[in-house]
C-alpha cells in the first residue's frame, strides 16, 4: 500500500462514477455516480494525508468537508426528486425536456 496504488484505486472509482453520472437516465442512479466521485476524492485526500503531509490533522479536516458536501448533495438531490416527481411524474432525465411546466 503506497500513495501511487491508493491514487490509482481512487482514479478507478472516479472513472466509474463519471461514467455513471454521464450515462444513467434515472435520477437516483445519476446521484450514485456523483457519490462515487466524491468517494474517490475522500480516498485520495486521506491517502495524501497519510503519505505526504506528515499527518497534519488539517488533511483529515478536508475529508470531513468533503463528507459534508456529499450529505448536502444527497439531501438536495432527494428533495428535488420528490418535487420533480410531484410536479411532472418524472423519474428519468429524458422526461425533463423543458424546465418550465
Amino acid at each position: 500500500m503506497n500513495l501511487d496504488s491508493l491514487l490509482i484505486v481512487a482514479a478507478a472509482i472516479f472513472g466509474i462514477g463519471l461514467y455513471g453520472a454521464l450515462s444513467q437516465q434515472s435520477f437516483v442512479m445519476l446521484m450514485m455516480g456523483l457519490e462515487l466521485m466524491i468517494n474517490s476524492a475522500i480516498l485520495a485526500t486521506v491517502a495524501f494525508w497519510a503519505a505526504s503531509t506528515g499527518g497534519s490533522p488539517k488533511g483529515q479536516m478536508l475529508a470531513i468537508v468533503f463528507m459534508t458536501v456529499m450529505a448536502i448533495e444527497m439531501a438536495l438531490g432527494f428533495a428535488l426528486i420528490v418535487n420533480v416527481y410531484r410536479a411532472r411524474k418524472a423519474d428519468i432525465t429524458e422526461k425533463l425536456k423543458k424546465l418550465k411546466a
Binding site: A11, F14, L18, Y19, G20, L22, S23, S26, T93
Partner: peptide, 16 residues
C-alpha cells in the same frame, strides 16, 4: 437505462 453510452464510457476511461 442509459443515454450517450459510448461517450460516457470514453469519458470514464479517459478520466481514469
Amino acid at each position: 437505462m442509459v443515454h450517450q453510452h459510448k461517450t460516457a464510457i470514453a469519458a470514464g476511461v479517459t478520466s481514469f
